[in-house]
Structure formats: C-alpha cells, structure tokens
Write a protein that binds this DNA or RNA. Structure first.
Length: 594
RNA sequence: GGCCCGGUGGCGCAAUUGGUUAGCGCACCAGACUGUCGAUCUGGGGGUUGAGGGUUCAAGUCCCUUCCGGGUCGCCA
C-alpha cells in the first residue's frame, strides 16, 4: 500500500475545498459520460463522489465494482445545481490525481446498496459483502453503541463484570444442552451454558454483590425468526434486593439507551401487570399493549346457551372468550377465514363469529344463539352495529393461545399498531409451577431457583401447585419478551423442597446440583436478578423483525452457518481421541446400522 | 416430527388450460455520450427450470420420492 488514506469517505465538506486528500474505499456505481466519469467511493463512514476527467479513461478501465482502491485527489466544489443534498458529502467531489488499486474483486453476488432482494441464504453465504450494506453495517455500529452504554451504566452503578465458564456442567430440565466431550475425562462431557444462572448466584454467595456480564448463551433447540442457538444476554444479579431494585437498574439502562440512541424519553417507572391480568386481557404473558382488542370473558353467559360448543366448553372446565373488532362487520369472508386459520394453528377447533349489520346478525354465532342469549354478550363486549365479534371456546390454554394470536394478527393486518410507540411492561407474579403432561409431574415454569411468594405446600399436601406464585418477572417491550428474572431461593432447605416438587430424586439432586446446594449452605444472601436478550433488544430498537439482521454471523433456520458451512464432519482422528463414534447416522460413508 | 410458502442465467422475478426457440429487470461485457449521483441510450454474452423417477405426442407447469431455503406449531426452565 503506497497511498495511505488521511480522510474517510464520509467526512469531506465545503470547508475542505482545495485540500489534497487521500481516500480509500470500495468502488461502487460508476457513471460514465464519455468525457467526465464519476465513481462513488464508499467505506463504513459514507460515500464520496470522485471525478475522472477526459484523459483518465485508462485508469478507469481498471476499476470495477467492489475493487478496493486508494486515491490521491483534490477536493473541489460541485458546479452550480449539482449539489447532492441527500449526502453529507454532497457539496464536494474529489478530482482524481492518482489511483492505487489495492485489490480486485469478483463481481459480487448481489449489489451493495440499501435495498436488495437477494435470498437470505445467499446473503449469509456472502456475509462479508452483505455487511458492507448500509442497513447491516449500521446495525452493527448501533449494537456496539448499545453495549458501550450498557457498560457505562453498569460501571456507574458499581456492578462488577465477571466472566463465567463456557465449558460447564450439563443440567436437567430446560433447553437441550450443547455437549462438548472431554478428552481428559473420557466418557464425560461438558455442556455449553444455557445461561450463567448458577454461577451468578454463586457469585452472590461469594459477596460480589452486583454482577453483570454480556455473555453468549447456547441452547440446542429449533430456531425461529427471534431465536438463534447462540445468542447474547445482558445478565445481571444483585444481593439484598427486592424486585423493585432490579427493575430500577433495568429501567435506567433502557432509558439511557432510548434517550441516547433514539432521542426518545421512556417514562419511568415501567407499568406492571400481573401474569393473571395479562392472560385475562391479552391471552398471553407478553402482551403488545400498543393496541386494544382485548379479550372479553363470556363464559358465564355462554354456559347457559343452547349452543353446545359454548356451553360444553364451560361445562368441562374451559372458557368462552371473545374479541370485539370495531367496524369488523365489513370484513370480507376471506379475512374472517384467515382469522380462523390462525386460531386453528394454536389448537382451537374453530373460530365462532358474528357480524352485526344493519340487517341483523350474520355468522355461526348469530345462527346458533337466540337473540336473548346474544344481546348480553354484545353488551359486555361494548359492541355496536358494524362490529365483528370472534369467539373461541375450549380449554383455557387453547382459548388464550388462539385469541392472543388472532388479536396480534388483527393488530397487524388492520394496521392498529403505532410503530412509533415503545411500550415497556413488567409482567409479574407468574405461577412457579406448571404441569408437564408429557412427563406426568409438575415442573418449574421459569426455572427451579425462583423464590416462591408464599410458603410451599408441606409434604403430602402437594396437590395442585398451579396457584403457587413465584417472585418472578418478565420485561416485555412491544410484545417481545425482552428479559426474564426473579428473586432467587437463597435457603438450601427451600431449594431442596422445590427440587422435590419438580420430581427430582435425592440422588439426582446430589449429582446435578449438590455443588450448588453446598454453596447455598455457606451463607448465601438474599439475591435476585434478570437477563435481557441483547439481540432482541437491538432488534426492537432498530425496528427489525429478524434477529439475523442484528447479528454479524447468524445461523440459518436449520442451525447452519452458510458462510463457514458449519457444522461439518469432525476432522481426522478427532472422534477417536475422544473415544466417540457416530451410530445411526444416515449418509454415504457411515453405515446406517452398526 | 407436523403444517404453510418457495427453489427457473450471478441476483430478483415471469411464463395462460400441459403446447413455438423459457421471457423481463438488475448485475456483467462492448459501444455512444463532458455533470451524473440507483445516470441514460444502443447492442451482446449468460439457463441440465434444485435432484431423481413417473404420466403424456408434448412437462418449468401434473403425480411420486428426495434435497435445500423461509415462516410457523411442537420445542425453547
């Protein structure tokens, strides 16, 4: 490299006119006018137009898309009427004096510009090109600012940044672990952490008092638009605290982030809502509160109707709930059917509905209910002529899931969501346990280390645990689950009892958690904390709808990295060294049945 | 594992009821043009329609199998 840049492509202004400068960057968008030629020279900082005058064609011949060049040139004012107001550098251009080609480039698989239509798989394979695009590059820079501000806040608040191990102990329940076989302990495995949960609690036992870490977490589960197998958490834990103390730190952090990066004042404190209320009003524990369409419980009215779908659901312990869609009577049948499809995806057997038109009631509910049965329902829903009511009748779990997603579908398709709003919400008082049908016993809804809000049932009096609340909280932003935390159990005997209630044998407890119980036995202080999903946080702040837009090198929906083509077959004797072999893997060079 | 959508030049898409030589835009290459800024104009090259099998006089199109991608349910304490 002979020419070394002394300015970036984003910084030249009118005040720089007549300077001789050296720029470096990527060649984009050549514009050839026969005599004069223009090239957009781009880097992370911006775009500078450079000009080649007649006689410089030979240089230009050697410059193709995405070639990397350095050039010496003179900053000049653009002629009258030629200023590009869309660009910070638009008042000037650089007349080329000398060019050094630093590297050539193959023709890129897609163009490096704001909007592209390339398939995501192509983009991931050529991520190095994709990351040159402004929206992606900006997301990376934005994310870096986010972590920087987080570190400032936590430093100011006297938190200690402590790293916890990546090679750790596999734990039962929760997500599937990624496993790392141990060479030094043949037959044994480490697990990659699903979160640093127990380590941070141990740090509290150690008296470190306020811990935080921006750390990778790994879970071997199927992927989604908002779920990657490896993701980043802002993890924190504090001693001698109540939920309010945890909330305050999180609120302060988000307020700083929104203020500094988006110029938005988030009002504090964030509103709080119980789990029970969230379910009753929205059917989901992470409600998007930016629009209405809340659920209405019709169970008592439905119980006495002659419509068996309704009365039957209530009789068997379920419920009948509805959503009123203002003005929905004019919704075409096709769209109503689409709603039913959503409901069915979430287990509902159907979606009952009624349209209130000038000429009366239309739809299955209008048909099967007497007007005397229908009227109290309309009244409770606050319905008016022109409205549509949709109903689901089933077990509560199904009714909630179906209507919650019908509601979201309506919110999106009817354009009811004010995207400029940021609704932060604490959802609190979650049940501690939920019944695992498959396993046939109770299990922890959040995790097994959450402090119960009330004394646990004594031995022999377990019964229904669904009413036991935990000191648990979720942070929800615009309907996205942003974080989850709790006040933890710090007394070993309470911890042992919870293990018991979720059906862990004493032997299991000793083998899996003996080390942790030992820590609790040596002066564990009351403590609690939370972990926020950093990728989701950045995603929501940037208004993107896919995690892959805010992660530099994400996996695709099958857990494959198209850039590196990982995962790949083990190299050489890697398996032998570990004493492993694959069995039952169908492929050309592996026997299907050993 | 289930369901929905998709796979056609480098990239994005089209192709009527199964019917001519598989089109279009961008990119690429060449030519024209002294002020563009996603330049414009003219011309050109580039295809085993993901793979395999089947039906048919004829398949991008229909059927079967399979692979790959996106979304989603289950799963994700």
């Amino acid at each position: 490299m002979r020419l070394q840049r002394n300015v970036t492509c984003g910084e030249l202004r009118a005040k720089d006119i007549d300077r001789e400068v050296i720029l470096a960057g990527w060649v984009r968008n050549r514009r050839d006018h026969g005599g004069v030629h223009f090239v957009d020279l781009c880097d992370r900082y911006g775009i500078t137009q450079v000009r080649f005058d007649p006689g410089q064609e030979a240089i230009l011949e050697g410059l193709k898309s995405e070639y990397v060049i350095a050039l010496r040139g003179k900053v000049e004012a653009r002629p009258e009427g030629q200023i590009n107001a869309d660009r910070p550098t638009g008042e000037v251009e650089v007349k080329v004096l000398e060019v050094e080609v630093l590297n050539t480039s193959k023709t890129p698989p897609f163009e490096v510009q704001e909007e592209i239509e390339a398939k995501e798989d192509t983009r991931l394979k050529y991520r190095f090109v994709d990351l040159r695009r402004r929206p992606l590059a900006e997301a990376m820079v934005f994310r870096s600012r986010v972590t920087q501000i987080i570190r400032e806040v936590f430093h100011d608040e006297d938190f200690v940044d402590i790293e916890t191990p990546l090679l750790t102990k596999t734990t039962p329940e929760g997500a599937r672990d990624f496993i790392v076989p141990s060479r030094l302990q043949p037959g044994m495995v480490y697990a990659l952490p699903q979160s640093p949960q127990l380590f941070k609690q141990v740090l509290m036992v150690s008296g470190l008092d306020r811990y935080y870490q921006i750390c990778k977490c790994l879970r071997d589960e199927d992927l989604r638009a908002d779920r990657q197998p490896e993701f980043t958490q802002l993890d924190m834990e504090m001693s001698f605290v109540r939920p309010d103390d945890v909330f305050a730190v999180v609120e302060k952090t988000l307020q700083r982030l929104w203020k500094e990066l988006k110029g938005v004042d988030l009002p504090l404190p964030f509103p709080r809502m119980s789990y029970a209320e969230a379910m009753a009003r929205f059917g989901i524990d992470k409600p998007d509160t930016r629009f209405g369409l809340e659920l209405v419980d019709m169970s008592d009215l439905a119980a006495t109707t002659g419509f068996k779908v309704f009365s039957g659901a209530v009789a068997s312990g379920g419920s009948v709930r509805a959503i009123r869609v203002p003005g929905g009577a004019s919704m075409p049948r096709k769209k109503v059917d689409a709603l039913e499809k959503v409901a069915k995806e979430y287990g509902a057997r159907g979606l009952a509905w009624v349209k209130w038109n000038e000429d009366g009631f239309q739809g299955p509910v209008g048909k099967f209910l007497q007007e005397s049965e229908l009227h109290p329902m309309l009244e409770r829903a606050g319905a008016e002529p022109g409205d549509l009511l949709v109903f689901v009748a089933d077990r509560d779990a199904v009714v909630f899931a179906a209507l919650a997603h019908v509601r979201l579908h309506l919110g999106r398709t009817l354009d009811l969501i004010d995207e400029s709003r940021t609704d932060c919400l604490w959802v609190v008082d979650f049940p501690l346990f939920e019944y695992d049908e498959e396993a046939g016993h109770w299990s922890a809804m959040h995790h097994m280390f959450t402090m119960p809000k009330e004394p646990l049932p004594a031995k022999g009096e377990e019964g229904d645990l669904s009413g036991v609340l935990g000191d648990l909280y979720d942070l929800v932003v615009n309907g996205v689950e942003m974080g989850s935390g709790s006040i933890r159990i710090h007394r070993p005997e309470v911890q042992r009892r919870v293990f018991e209630l979720v059906n862990l044998s004493e032997d299991d407890v000793e083998a899996k958690f003996g080390w942790f119980l030992r820590a609790l036995e040596y002066g564990a202080p009351p403590h609690g904390g939370i972990a926020l999903g950093l990728d989701r946080l950045v995603m929501v702040m940037l208004g993107r709808d896919n995690l892959r837009e805010v992660i530099a090198f994400p996996k695709n929906s099958r857990g494959v990295c198209p850039l590196t083509e990982s995962p790949s077959e083990p190299l050489g004797d890697a398996l032998d060294v570990l004493g492993l072999r694959f069995v039952g893997v169908a492929s050309d060079d592996a026997p299907q049945d050993a």
